[in-house]
Design a protein around this nucleic acid. Sequence first.
RNA 1: UGCCUCGUAGCCAAGUGGUAAGGCAUCAGACUUUGACUCUGACAUUCCGAAGGUCCGAAUCCUUCCGAGGCAG
Length: 367
Amino acid sequence: MEKVIVGVSGGVDSAVALFLLKKEGYDVEGLFMRNWDSGINNDIDGNPNFGMSICPQEQDYNDALKLCNDMGVKLHRVDFIKEYWDYVFTYFLDELKKGRTPNPDMLCNKYIKFDLFIKEARKLGAKYVATGHYARLENGKLKRSVDLNKDQTYFLADVKREQFKDVLFPVGDYTKPEIRKIAKDNNLVVAEKKDSTGICFIGERNYQKFVQNYLVPNEGDIVDIETLKVIGVHTGLMNYTIGQRRNVGISGNESRHFVCGKDTEKNILYVTFGDSEYLYSDECIIENINFISDIHPVFCSAKFRYRGEDVQVQLEYLENDLIKVKYMEKVKAVTPGQACVLYLGDECLGCGFIKEVRKNNEKLWYL
RNA sequence: UGCCUCGUAGCCAAGUGGUAAGGCAUCAGACUUUGACUCUGACAUUCCGAAGGUCCGAAUCCUUCCGAGGCAG
């Protein structure tokens, strides 16, 4: 029987992945991965769990262990704490320092889950490696999951196509409710466990405090982009993303405010009010392109943010591995550092990272 | 010093005699493997700068005081 190593996180999705593969007759074993250690990584401020006897990760491990024991499956465990720090977290901090909005989970998939993790699984004799991602692989093509609401291809778009060789996504063919039902019907211990959110491996917490464990906050002016008047004080540019409304710390205005830009040189945060033109753009330039597909189209659709709308776009392939992405209609809050993921129908073609945001053939000066 | 305007929750702000709109912020949820966005709910239980007065009844009218700003000299 061919051996499959399943990345077991302690959540429902990977539990069902494990269950489905075992049912299909594979020789399955679980591998639990740990990439973050609050003590080693000095993650203290804003950590609701610091000092608790059982941190959520250990709880997850216990759940995974119980699950595997119930199913008669062997569970292995591996730590990539240093590697996560070196490959993912330093990038995360570097991007923040530049005033951009990084997506650490995409790097985690690229460098940890679909690289180091797979290598570890190979050591354990794996022919295939499976995870609980909502995505599908068909003939080397990455496709959106059946449940479009849960589709996670956005996070997988920066993984190289070779890395998907021998990868299985068993839950991608089901909807979330079906996954829950399978878990329940088969008495998997984690059937009722709440979905986790937040940066994976780090979890949910007060974001600003979390970041302040690593970056020194540098206060500066909040400026109304319309009048260029100073209307408040920001707590450090790394604490804001484009399109953000909450936690900006200004009030008393007629309509809602949104962050629309930053000036890292002058340490200024720009805000605008209501459904302002300053939030919209009509094209952007993306860098660090990764194509999973052979198709390099001129017309396709794109997502500029996880769970964002699919937007029809036109691609212009530039020199130096850059692509200009023109959108058929204006898009709100396209943010440097975020991934622009390309799709053709159900197929996820790949992605690039937003380098420059433009409107009317000019780079937006305030971004 | 004389005259004028204004003073409503953390902020902005409706309401000019009939028993305190709304927005922002905040808090709690929903949604969500990236801080977002979006959505739902809570938010001045006699109170409208303070103290008196008129009235069946005032934040709304009158008096005085306090405070902010403006005009005059």
